[in-house]
Measured scan of single mutants.
Amino acid sequence: MIVFVRFNSSHGFPVEVDSDTSIFQLKEVVAKRQGVPADQLRVIFAGKELRNDWTVQNCDLDQQSIVHIVQRPWRKGQEMNATGGDDPRNAAGGCEREPQSLTRVDLSSSVLPGDSVGLAVILHTDSRKDSPPAGSPAGRSIYNSFYVYCKGPCQRVQPGKLRVQCSTCRQATLTLTQGPSCWDDVLIPNRMSGECQSPHCPGTSAEFFFKCGAHPTSDKETSVALHLIATNSRNITCITCTDVRSPVLVFQCNSRHVICLDCFHLYCVTRLNDRQFVHDPQLGYSLPCVAGCPNSLIKELHHFRILGEEQYNRYQQYGAEECVLQMGGVLCPRPGCGAGLLPEPDQRKVTCEGGNGLGCGFAFCRECKEAYHEGECSAVFEASGTTTQAYRVDERAAEQARWEAASKETIKKTTKPCPRCHVPVEKNGGCMHMKCPQPQCRLEWCWNCGCEWNRVCMGDHWFDV
């Protein structure tokens, strides 16, 4: 396979590697080409510095992935760790964990309700045991953590790749202090920090972006993250068709209702045909949960890209028209025109101005929308079919299609509260000796007794199943 190397943020060049090629071997190839010592090179990928003893497969490097290699003399205490030698983080029983690669970060837990604080980093599902597709590297999971809308060759929703760059020099040479644990960490600028490894760059702020994971991409090709779309790892039924499908869209209502993408497309087109989208002054033209839940309008309007190009163009047109109407304007009634106009409040005669090729020149009556006339309008008909009709959803289907309910059931079956801080902690095999993952707590306690870890627990039921 081919990976592209950008040395000291210059133009990239291809390097041929195998899945079992080590990072140090990659350094040696680059060092020979650039005429520099291999031990002064640092390989940066997806916000993480890659260790010498890791392989291309370990690092989730795919065909035509772009890695950054910078030349920086080692500072005291760094060289041993980078070589894969006596790194205290690798000691058996050590409590410190390697910062998780962005290629394996899962933010789907952050669609849980606000009262489930902490689960994004504490609760991990076991539903990723799908067998890898044919042709994928051994052991590589097909679980997708992110979804994007690819405006490039795909023109559809695709699995996405999370990447990070330095907000100062805009190069992907920043190593994160810690990985993101929720969508806010990724979507809110300057929320996460790190250290830029580019020479002479003092940058410390992280800037995240997404790429389409279905095809090789260049540095400049980015895609918009659709953070309401998630892999259906909890096997929730769709609120409309009641099938279990994946991926799904999880509405931001209190129940976190789930809808499959085909039904979401149908829901949007139906509402669009009836012009029953909601115009929100802050958000724009949007839709609420299909069950009509309060405070559930979709905030990231790129989710409506699921409509496809033709329907999305209609959505944008109707949204612009609705904006004009909300501002007190009118639409030209001549067939084939429909231009938005903003006449004076007491102006009865409205002319669709033909300047700049935008208007048709038609003069019409503001009251009856017919060709302009003197005197009273002959008839004014009330528009028919403008009443909002509820999208029919079966109550039982709505009850079963809740992301929140599956989460709470998982928590109930696989977790116990920490005796000190009461945060839910998952036990997935292993011994009875637990350690609270909350940095402010870190209590060592017994899963069996529910009390602080002691010699009695150690001698009596340390390794009970």
Rank of each mutant, 00 (worst) to 15 (best):
V17M: 04
L26G: 00
E28G: 05
V30Y: 00
K32D: 07
R33K: 10
G35T: 04
D39A: 07
L41W: 01
V43H: 01
V43I: 05
I44T: 04
F45C: 11
R51Y: 08
R51S: 08
N58C: 07
H68F: 02
V70W: 02
Q71D: 07
K76A: 14
G77D: 14
A82C: 09
G84F: 13
G85P: 11
N90Q: 12
A91Y: 11
A92W: 14
G93I: 14
E96Y: 15
P99A: 13
Q100D: 13
L102E: 14
D106T: 08
S109E: 11
V111S: 12
G114H: 13
L119I: 11
P133D: 11
A134Y: 09
F146N: 01
Y147C: 01
R156M: 10
P159F: 08
R163S: 15
T168K: 09
C169F: 00
T173R: 06
L187E: 05
P199K: 09
G203A: 03
G203T: 02
T204F: 05
F209Y: 13
F210T: 03
K211R: 09
D219G: 07
E221Y: 08
A230D: 01
T231E: 11
S233D: 14
R245A: 11
D262L: 03
C263V: 01
V278H: 11
V278F: 08
H279D: 07
D280N: 09
D280Y: 09
P294Q: 09
N295R: 07
L297I: 09
L297K: 03
I298F: 01
R305L: 08
Q311I: 05
Y315F: 11
Y318M: 04
A320Q: 11
E321V: 06
C323F: 11
L331I: 07
C337Y: 02
A339V: 14
Q347L: 11
R348F: 05
K349V: 07
C365Y: 02
E370G: 06
A379F: 11
V380F: 08
E382F: 13
G385L: 09
G385S: 08
T386V: 12
Q389T: 15
E399M: 14
R402W: 03
K412E: 10
C418I: 00
C421F: 01
H422P: 01
H422V: 05
V423G: 15
V425W: 05
N428F: 13
E452M: 15
N454I: 02
V456D: 15
D464R: 15
